[in-house]
């Protein structure tokens, strides 16, 4: 066999590369105002669409459905109810330490849900924990002591 002929067992060479690239995402006027209200006033705001009348949370500058700008700010929450949830049991790079409960929380006064965590829950038995938070369970935002203008200024939602 010549050197250029390959057998199926032949070593496949591996070239290792890495992406490690910093980014800076500008939140813009609307999201910045939303985050400032969380950071400075511990308040959660949505915006009401003048056309469909839905209160959209988190706040945004336009309604995708009606395709119009929105600017009518409305305070929502801090209480709400669980629309659905899941309990992540796997560790992923850059994500919280498992197990943790991720949930869609519909805040009082809002027509949409917020993706966030349910905390203060004994997760030693996941099945049992899940049975404690059926859809509709009432929850309330718990604020972080030191807030820096991010969705994580809400530390988690606790059961009421």
């Amino acid at each position: 066999m010549s050197k250029m002929e390959q057998s199926s067992e032949e070593e496949s060479i591996v070239i290792e590369t890495r992406w490690n690239i910093p980014f800076a995402h500008h939140a813009g006027r609307t999201a910045s105002r939303f985050f400032r209200a969380m950071r400075d006033e511990q308040k959660i705001y949505g915006v009401r669409c003048g056309q469909c009348q839905r209160v959209l949370v988190p706040a945004r500058s336009f309604c995708e459905q009606c395709f119009v700008p929105v600017q009518d700010w409305v305070e929502v929450g801090p209480q709400g109810s669980i629309e659905s949830f899941a309990i992540n049991c796997m560790q992923y790079e850059g994500l919280p330490t498992p197990p943790y409960v991720i949930a869609l929380v519909k805040l009082d006064g809002a027509d949409t849900s917020l993706l966030h965590w349910i905390g203060d829950l004994d997760l030693s038995n996941v099945e049992m924990a899940a049975s404690r938070i059926p859809i509709g369970t009432r929850v309330e935002a718990v604020w972080k002591a030191k807030r820096d203008g991010a969705m994580t200024d809400i530390a988690y939602f606790r059961l009421l």
Partner: peptide, 26 residues
Amino acid sequence: CPIYDRNIGGTAITLGSLPATRHMGL
């Protein structure tokens, strides 16, 4: 979304798990 969602830690599985929980509940 890096502004609103990313650091909450939804995973690829979440797109199946949240509807699954909802279906169980309803």
